[in-house]
Design a protein around this nucleic acid. Structure first.
Length: 673
DNA sequence: GCGATCAGGT
DNA sequence: CACACCTGATCGC
């Protein structure tokens, strides 16, 4: 939750994301995105009055944010005072003091922030230096290197201060699975469920906030089913979103809400109250997007966790993890870093301490003090511990790959000149640490992901057999898979220029059609493409509308499941113990053997059937599941991997490590980890 | 009656 | 664990 006061030291006559108190006197306002905690005071009567008498005060934001903001009548009074700035398009703005006539010019550039539709960062250049206000952001590692306007002449701009989203800037939030990994987990879960019958539906338990659209559009595309939402008026001028949502309840994927939705669900009703046309009970699973993370020496987190008989949590984060923030800041290497958020359980001083190593000055000091030892391996280690928290050793280096060299973005300007040795980047920031120096056994979990040499994807998913198989069946995963090798020091212990860098893979990823990165700005088109959707709202909710509106092979068409089911569920099951009955310690990933997975799904089926008032003719024999005995099992996975390695094993492994042998950690019967 | 703030909930 | 938001109670104007 942002606690940014609204003003920056360098440009104190403008206010960003805060509109109350002192900010009432600002010469210009900036809104990074449409979340309430960044809009404090924005509809306040005082500000409203000020606007009435002002000719020059404007609110600057992205076109999408403007659209979303004005969709709410409470902000209509802003209408004539909003200036939508295109992303990646530097704009000169005159800041005029209406009393004195005093004027200051700045150049503002909006940069995509990846937090929610329309979210941007503000890069501000002027006489007081270049500063960056990030708003809230989620950028994957390496993305910063592709942001054209953070660069100039092939180098990173000299940035005085960054006001940064530090929501997860705490080493305990070291890693959060990537968007792609999370999406893939959700896809798989949904795919398996809705294939069972037209009456198997999914409810996405999303908060009332922008930011889930990325999910909706991808799921809609994948399953050829629009997502049911309460309201889609706000997207009426954003066709890329609009075409993936619907207010027609007859669809298998819902993200609708109701004040008592949890209660509804317990009664096997969707929040919209929807039931199947002929009274057949719906089989509902709920998926609640939640932030999951793991520390650098924690077991890796899986992206889907089953928390009840028919409810799941799916990893989803609006904010960058610690390592992503670190990647971002270390790349920019600003003189000052100011946190916008104090993570819970931390103090301002804590955060400052965490941020210090990412500041330019600190890095320089590090260099001066430690550089003389530079040729000694030992020196690097020491420097490292000074430079950053000891926890991040494993992920440290990839942050920087070709240090401070801008990587091409979408238009891919190809002229990448190597930087001279006097590049502003402090040498300290550039260094990396040969992994061989850190055979710390407690970190082997991460290092070893690479040992399989078989690319473990980018630290997000397990390297269990099932996950590898997942990678082969989905091209988008391939991309993720490759990037791990470069991310994990063990994969590429020598930090070589771009070739091995994640950015390279990212670039490669751009070409492939599947894993489209979430470019929110792309959702917006200036053209008012009016499909006239919103008009029918609740009116046409009958079964006719349903078959008309639900494209794809599985439109709810009675029970013809057995033959039209070319997309049989891959008998992949999702066994995770119900904490209610089994206890938390059991929530570990359980990769069921084929037969067991089927049994598990069937069990689910049966209990559904039991609770339903009319089970009708949808017998187990009809279940498409049964027709697909050869499909591979799935692991719907867990947050907690309950089995810690035994002390004996660890000792043994240490010995082997010391002897330079390969070490394979076994986890239960699941094979190498 | 309105807004701001807080607690408690999802 | 968190986030973003809602509701309801309380307080001050």
């Amino acid at each position: 939750m942002s606690s940014f006061g609204g003003r920056m030291k360098e440009y104190s006559t403008i206010s960003l994301d805060r509109f109350d108190r002192d900010n009432l006197h600002a010469r210009a306002y900036f809104l990074s995105h449409c979340h309430k905690d960044h809009m404090k005071g924005l509809k306040g009567p005082l500000l409203k009055r000020k606007l009435k008498f002002s000719l020059t005060v404007k609110l600057y934001c992205s076109p999408v944010t403007k659209e979303l903001l004005l969709n709410n009548p409470k902000y209509h009074f802003w209408e004539d005072h909003i200036v939508a700035l295109e992303v990646d398009n530097p704009t000169q703005i005159s800041l005029v003091d209406e009393m004195s006539g005093e004027k200051e010019d700045i150049v503002v550039t909006l940069l995509p922030a990846g937090h929610c539709p329309g979210s941007v960062m503000f890069l501000i250049e002027g006489n007081q230096g270049t500063v960056l206000y990030t708003g809230d952001f989620r950028l994957a590692k390496g993305e910063v290197a592709r942001m054209e306007f953070l660069h100039s002449g092939g180098r990173v701009k000299d940035i005085q201060s960054v006001y940064v989203d530090t929501t997860f800037c705490d080493p305990s939030f070291f890693q959060i699975p990537s968007r792609e990994a999370c999406l893939n987990g959700i896809r798989k879960l949904i795919r398996n469920w809705i294939a069972l019958s037209p009456y198997h539906v999914v409810w996405m338990n999303c908060k009332a906030a922008y930011g889930y659209e990325y999910l909706f559009t991808n799921l809609s595309e994948e399953f050829s089913r629009q997502i049911h939402v309460n309201n889609m008026d706000m997207f009426k001028r954003m066709p890329e979103i609009l075409c993936h949502v619907t207010t027609n309840r007859m669809t298998q994927i819902h993200a609708c809400r109701h004040p008592k939705d949890e209660e509804f669900l317990r009664g096997s009703r969707l929040p919209c109250g929807s039931t199947a046309p002929n009274g057949t009970p719906l089989h509902i699973i709920s998926i609640k997007p939640s932030t999951m993370w793991f520390g650098d020496r924690m077991q890796k987190t899986n992206v889907i966790v089953k928390i009840g008989r028919s409810s799941y949590r799916a990893c989803f984060s609006f904010h960058s993890s610690y390592s992503e923030i670190k990647d971002f800041l270390t790349y920019i290497c600003p003189v000052n870093i100011y946190p916008n958020v104090i993570p819970l359980g931390r103090t301002l001083d804590d955060v400052k301490e965490i941020l210090k190593p990412m500041c330019r000055e600190h890095s320089r000091r590090g260099v001066i003090i430690y550089k003389p030892l530079g040729t000694l391996k030992r020196a690097k280690i020491e420097n490292k511990t000074i430079d950053s928290d000891s926890e991040d050793e494993l992920f440290e280096e990839e942050v920087l790959t070709p240090w401070r060299r801008k990587l091409p973005g979408k238009p891919l300007p190809t002229s990448l000149k190597p930087l001279s040795s006097e590049d502003r980047a402090p040498p300290n920031c550039q260094e990396h640490f040969g992994l061989e120096l850190h055979p710390a056994p407690q970190n082997r979990n991460y290092i070893d992901c690479t040992e399989s040499n078989d690319d473990d994807e980018d630290d997000e998913e397990d390297e269990e057999p099932i996950e590898l198989q997942k990678a082969t069946e989905n091209p988008s995963n391939d991309h993720a898979t490759k990037s791990c090798n470069s991310q994990n020091p063990a994969c590429s212990p020598k930090r070589e220029p771009a070739e091995g860098s994640e950015d390279q893979h990212k670039l490669a990823g751009v070409a492939s059609p599947k894993p489209e990165p979430p470019t929110w700005e792309a959702f917006f088109t200036a053209d008012p493409v009016l499909t006239d959707e919103g008009s029918e709202l609740e009116s046409s909710q009958n079964s006719q509308a349903l078959s008309a509106e639900t494209p794809g092979p599985r439109s709810p068409n009675l029970f013809s499941d057995s033959d039209d089911d070319s997309t049989y569920i891959s008998s992949q099951s999702t066994h995770i113990s119900d904490p209610g009955t089994d206890g938390l310690s059991q929530i570990g990933t359980t990769l069921l053997p084929l037969e067991d997975s089927r049994a598990e799904l069937l069990k689910n089926q049966q209990s559904d059937a039991h609770e339903a008032s009319h089970q009708s003719n949808h017998s187990l024999n009809d279940c498409p599941l049964r027709a697909s005995p050869r499909c591979p099992p799935i692991s719907i996975t867990s947050m907690l991997d309950s089995q810690a390695p035994k002390l004996e094993d660890l000792k043994d492994s240490c010995k082997k490590l010391a002897a330079g042998e390969d070490v394979v950690f076994k986890r239960g019967s699941q094979g190498a980890v």
